[in-house]
Amino acid sequence: MSSMGASDSGSNPSMLHGHAAYVAAAAKETVGSYTSTDMQNAGSADKQAAVDEMRAAKQASDAQGEEIGKNQTLGKVEQSLGSATGCEGMEEEGAKRQA
């Protein structure tokens, strides 16, 4: 279904890769809405795979008891990107980094 998820290749899920994949998939889905239903559907599927990867990465970090690093600048960027792409998880994580 998707070629973007790191977990598809057997590697550990990554929050950073998941975010990057989500942004790329959202762009693909948007372009597909103007050009091709197949491309739009592929973007939607890739977006879901990216969300799944981010959830898996979050669960893995929660299980290890890792705390989100506080970084005001990174938090603002992450929150802004999340808002622009419609990724609620990115918005929430960005807000936590700023706290």
Rank of each mutant, 00 (worst) to 15 (best):
E78T: 15
K58W: 11
Q98S: 06
S36D: 09
I68A: 09
T30L: 15
K47D: 00
D8L: 15
Q72M: 14
L16I: 11
T85H: 06
I68G: 03
G69L: 09
A60T: 06
G10S: 03
S61F: 05
G75V: 06
A26H: 06
G5C: 07
D8G: 08
A63W: 05
A49N: 04
G43F: 03
E92K: 14
E67S: 12
L81W: 07
Y22H: 03
Q48M: 12
Q98I: 05
A20G: 06
H17V: 11
A57S: 05
Q79V: 01
V31Y: 13
K47T: 04
A60W: 04
A95K: 15
E53F: 01
K70M: 06
N41Y: 05
T85W: 03
I68C: 13
H17I: 14
A56K: 08
D38V: 12
I68L: 15
Q48C: 05
T35L: 14
N71V: 10
S44D: 12
A95G: 02
E67K: 14
Q64F: 11
A50E: 02
Q72L: 15
M4C: 10
D8C: 05
G65P: 06
V77L: 13
E93D: 07
M90V: 01
S80M: 12
S11Y: 15
G69P: 10
D52H: 03
K76Q: 13
H19P: 01
T35P: 03
A50Q: 00
H19R: 13
E29R: 12
R55H: 15
A99G: 09
T37I: 12
A57Y: 02
S36C: 10
D8Q: 14
E78S: 09
Q98N: 06
D8I: 13
V31M: 13
G65R: 11
G69Q: 12
D52E: 09
A95N: 03
S11N: 09
S36M: 05
S36K: 03
M54R: 07
G89T: 14
T35E: 14
E29N: 13
E78I: 07
E67G: 08
K28Q: 12
M15F: 13
G18H: 02
G5L: 00
A45L: 11
T73R: 12
S80Q: 14
T37P: 04
D46Q: 10
K76S: 13
K58E: 15
G75E: 03
T35G: 08
S36I: 07
N71E: 10
A63E: 08
K47E: 07
A21K: 03
M15L: 15
A20E: 12
R55W: 09
T85V: 08
I68Y: 06
H19M: 12
E88P: 00
A95M: 06
